[in-house]
Design a binder for these strands. Structure first.
Length: 199
DNA sequence: CTGAGGATCCTG
DNA sequence: AGGATCCTCAGC
């Protein structure tokens, strides 16, 4: 089943685990397209002290209150960007943080090249093991804020993975790097995957 | 205008 | 355990 806007228009608590195993697709320079499997996510709800939307709408977080399926990119610690998908109903400030993506089986694709004998292009398993590393690898910055992530594919999209193994087991655990609401079990990752930021 | 703090990551 | 490094927001 295709990932549509409707897929994202549910609670972040449902979308976050469902995103594990889905494909993140990014258009790079020279028409190169990178595809990786999402292996780690975290949910942030408006009524959640750790959420950027907790204290209401601001210029930074306004996209979180908009329609679902759009990107929310923010800059943190003067060093890194983090990439989120807005979820839930319009007017609700919530999102899912994409924490890690597995690009180890990435195949290079040239748009103007029809032959599919691409060399298997294998990236380091931990090239995107963490939200900051993911954005660095995919060249994601504020210019990618508030972009639609459902199809049609333009700069960046989240799409279904036909090879997703529904039997894979997920680990549910506390979120990382937050001061408040440390006990909420709102982080999910693919059990046994080496691209996960922390085990 | 000012200052504090942050959904990280790398080094030692 | 600490530092990099700068944007954002609240407070005055």
């Amino acid at each position: 089943m295709k990932i549509t806007k409707k897929f994202f228009s549910r609670s972040a608590l449902e979308v976050a685990p469902d995103l594990i195993g889905c494909v993140l697709m990014r258009r790079m320079e020279k028409g190169k397209i990178l595809k990786g499997m999402i292996v780690e996510t975290e949910a942030y709800l408006q009524a959640d002290p750790a959420c950027h939307a907790y204290k209401g709408i601001t210029k930074r977080n306004e996209v979180m209150f908009g329609p679902a399926g759009f990107s929310y990119v923010y800059f943190i610690y003067g060093v890194h960007y983090c990439f989120n998908v807005v979820t839930g109903l319009e007017g609700q400030g919530e999102a899912v943080l994409i924490r890690a993506v597995d690009f180890s089986y990435e195949k290079k694709i040239n748009e103007n090249d029809d032959n599919d004998d691409n060399e298997g292009n294998s990236y380091d398993i931990r090239i995107a093991a963490g939200p900051g590393k993911l954005c660095k690898f995919l060249n994601i910055d504020k210019s990618l804020n508030a972009k639609p992530l459902f199809l049609p594919f333009n700069d960046i999209s989240i799409v279904n993975n036909p090879k997703k193994n529904m039997a894979d087991s997920l680990v549910q655990c506390p979120r990382i790097g937050i001061k408040l609401a440390k006990d909420y079990l709102w982080r999910w990752y693919l059990k046994g995957n080496k691209a996960v930021s922390r085990f």
